[in-house]
Simulated scan of single mutants.
Amino acid sequence: MNLILLIMAFCVGVAMSVQAAVNTQLAASIGANSVVAAFVSFACGTIVLGGMALSRGGLGPTFAALATQPAWKFAGGFLGAAFVFGTVFLAPRIGLLSLIVLVIAGQLITSMAIDHFGLIHMAARKVSGVRMLGAGVVALGVAVTLFGERIVAGFGR
């Protein structure tokens, strides 16, 4: 795999954590309104992406092609909104670390299923035993992150 692409993926993970923290602070500063904070986040992102789209040739031909797309292909926007709202709502309630490890666990399980079975019209990439082991190690890390202190305290009794 291309090292630059792997570094970019890592940076996306960094951005997710920072985004959750920034949006949580925005929500707190506007009266704990998670929905408005998520809306503002999306509005800012829409402006940036709109500018980038215009700089790459405009939106006209793309908008024309949108009319022919099946409705399920628009689910990404709803899922993105749910993600941003979920992070803004959950981070102050369960903590950023718990939120992110659970997000990673959910992404890991779902991504393995999508890759393995070629779901949502993605290319099928069989999940090997070694990758399953790696996922298990990550799942164990999630469990230790979430419950490790209770487990250690239980041994001290």
Rank of each mutant, 00 (worst) to 15 (best):
G154H: 05
A32F: 13
V35K: 15
L79G: 08
T110K: 01
L133N: 07
A37T: 10
G95H: 09
I104A: 06
L5D: 13
A113W: 01
F83R: 01
L119K: 05
T87Q: 02
G51T: 01
E149G: 09
A71G: 00
W72V: 12
L146F: 11
L133F: 02
G134F: 04
I151C: 01
I47A: 11
G31F: 09
R157Y: 01
F117H: 09
V137F: 10
N23K: 05
V103L: 08
I109C: 07
G134N: 00
I120H: 11
G80I: 03
E149S: 14
T110G: 08
L140D: 08
A32I: 09
E149Y: 09
F42G: 11
Q69V: 11
K126G: 04
S34M: 12
I7A: 15
V103S: 07
G60K: 13
F85V: 01
M52H: 12
N33D: 07
A32L: 10
T68F: 08
A38M: 08
R56Q: 15
I114R: 03
C44I: 15
Q107Y: 03
F117C: 05
F74R: 03
L3W: 15
L96D: 00
G129N: 05
G57Q: 11
V84M: 05
W72L: 06
S41G: 14
L26A: 06
L96T: 00
G57R: 11
V101H: 04
G76L: 03
F155M: 14
G60S: 14
S98D: 02
A153D: 03
T24G: 10
V36R: 12
A9M: 13
N2A: 12
N23W: 00
V101R: 09
V88T: 02
S128T: 07
F42L: 13
P61R: 11
G58Q: 07
V14W: 06
A32Q: 12
S17R: 04
T145C: 07
T87V: 01
M16S: 12
A139N: 07
I94N: 03
G141H: 03
V35A: 15
V36P: 04
T87K: 01
F85L: 04
G106M: 05
T110I: 09
R125K: 15
M132A: 06
Q107S: 03
V36Y: 08
Q19R: 10
G31C: 09
G154N: 05
